[in-house]
Design a protein around this nucleic acid. Structure first.
Lengths: 120, 120
DNA sequence: TTATCATTTGATCATTTGTTCAGATGATAA
DNA sequence: TTATCATCTGAACAAATGATCAAATGATAA
């Protein structure tokens, strides 16, 4: 029996639920990778890029003109999206054509749109 | 025929693609709401919360203990998730029990996990 | 080689973000 | 009423973010 000094100071109510949550939790690494994925899609300009690439391949110049920011900004964003396997590129001479990397991206966008349009 | 001074200064290559992208683009409002949705899921701690609530209802105290931050921090995060209809709450006396608001959330997480585990 | 175009890189900076703290609010029971 | 617990709110601040600029890289053609 723990003395009063050693007792947990927290006010938490349901120790069993906390334990269950901890048991079923994603491991830190996977949790952070998933957060990075969602965060990458959570910027208005990056989302515009992904939405546009869902229809057609586009190069950095095109995207810069479309979004209304510098080509440098687009390049920075594309690097991030590439590292997360959200987009892939194909070179044709000096031009890099970007496209979505796989179907998950458009699926995620489709689901999110459903969520937005259904409630409220 | 425009004089050299009046010509477009941009280096963009495919005006047709830029036009198509602009035509099919989401309107600003919807684009920003979707970005806000993904951004909300793009923080490691908020994602832990959502993942935990996918299994069971939990109150603010529980989540604070589980995540390892103050109850205030959890409350701030839950407010944001509530505003986006990602979580909903149920009062039982002084305690608020939080749960996922609808199935889209767990679907989004499931898809993201698939993406992470498939490539690389 | 040189010149040009498309893209990338690194530095910089204003803005945004997530947390904590202190105090307020709201419900319950004595 | 008063006391207590669970939650919320707003201010403050360090850390992360997204954009721009300037310069570097890489491919192509003269």
């Amino acid at each position: 029996m723990p003395s009063p000094d050693e007792q947990c100071q927290c006010r938490c109510i349901h120790q069993d639920r906390i334990t269950l949550a901890a048991d079923k939790a994603l491991d830190t690494r996977e949790n952070e990778r998933m957060a990075a994925l969602f965060k990458a899609m959570g910027d208005p300009n990056r989302l515009r890029i992904l939405w546009a690439l869902n229809n057609q391949e586009m190069c950095v110049c095109d995207l810069a003109q479309f979004i209304g920011v510098t080509e440098s900004a687009i390049s920075h964003q594309l690097r991030r999206l590439r590292q997360l396997h959200l987009v892939a590129s194909r070179r044709e001479g000096p031009v890099l054509y970007y496209r979505l990397d796989d179907d998950h991206v458009s699926e995620l966008i489709r689901l999110a749109l459903q969520h937005l349009r259904e409630d409220t």
